[in-house]
Nucleic acid binder design. Sequence first.
DNA 1: TTTTATATCCGTATAAATACGGATTTTTGA
DNA 2: TCAAAAATCCGTATTTATACGGATATAAAA
Lengths: 210, 210
Amino acid sequence: MKTIKLVIADDHELFRNGLNELLKRHDDIEVIQCVSDGEELIKFIKSNPETDIVLLDISMPNMDGFGALNKLKSINTNVKPIIISMHDEGNYIAKCAKMGAYSYLLKNTDQEELVKVVRIVSGGKKYFSPNISEKMIDYMSDNTVSKDILSKKETEVLTLISKGNTTKEIAAQLYVSSRTIETHRANILKKLNVKNTAELIIKAVNMKLI
Amino acid sequence: MKTIKLVIADDHELFRNGLNELLKRHDDIEVIQCVSDGEELIKFIKSNPETDIVLLDISMPNMDGFGALNKLKSINTNVKPIIISMHDEGNYIAKCAKMGAYSYLLKNTDQEELVKVVRIVSGGKKYFSPNISEKMIDYMSDNTVSKDILSKKETEVLTLISKGNTTKEIAAQLYVSSRTIETHRANILKKLNVKNTAELIIKAVNMKLI
DNA sequence: TTTTATATCCGTATAAATACGGATTTTTGA
DNA sequence: TCAAAAATCCGTATTTATACGGATATAAAA
């Protein structure tokens, strides 16, 4: 039987080692490497392109999971990334799916599920559990509003808002009328479907717009 | 030799199991229970007050680590809590230390360190690693922040602001006058040294107050 | 116990943001 | 190239937020 060659990429040593221990008990899975950031992962995969699976955390130093997913596509490898994250936000999931992840697991997934998914993915099939898919769908459909990403100017205005500038101050900095900025603000609120500055900032932070 | 009776409290199953596996290899440590939230933990400790150590995550559903620390003090037990968190922010660390934690480890701690700390704490000694202490000290001495912590009410108001509520709406929800909320808002702005809602939210997010 | 911090409330004013409902020019993408 | 989106501007009105400068009762801390 061919064993599944697997790499773990997570910046938390205890989590890495824990996963390692769990997977070690399965004869068909071989953890061939543990790395703690995206750069290490890419370096390893470049010299070990025959790797089957990488269990990939999103938040890591140097190069995060998103960056790693991106890089992997430009490398000559068949490695299939499985995201293991604690975030169940739709935008994360959707982003990963779009960037080529084969699965998306939460860190509270049970062991059986993890092993099951590793086996499914090693066979070349993508697998997203129903609850994960649901989050993604929700996000996608909510996109009718938030997919109209902000225009360049709007993004600029949003950034200045987030730095505590008032409409008047922003107008002065951008050499336009306050009315213009007021309109931009109104349009930003509308596009992000929020009703005031507080909600706006929260949403923008969540969407990584700031 | 008396074994160290240990409980793991973390909402991520993979992490719980991984820790369990790691600790299992040490004869002097016995993982007697794994729980996934603070309520379960308290329930277990109440009926097993002879537990020596609890490895306690901060972010958990139902009752988080802070709540659990708080509860533990009012229970007749000698259990010594060791926080295992991914957050290395000074305010988290300081808060835990103040609430009776015996140690504070990051999730990227290595196994040897973990086991070492478990043994030290089981002997009744508190242990905070140099890098953790440093963060805490930094936080303590940064009086611009630490001295201006928000009061309970203010925190409540801040949370409601961050959810997009207006002053009037908050007043209605808390059964007080709008004037009161206005004062709270003013005090919050002053304490966090910001001048409007946008800056406030940004700062609060950065400080993990939201 | 005495001081300090907290939570509550009030008035007066101004500044800022939001909600309507338009319009024109420039840029850009299909 | 031509339609659509973006960026610019305007008026009127209302609602919110911020800035002063107070006050009192209670709880917590020193």
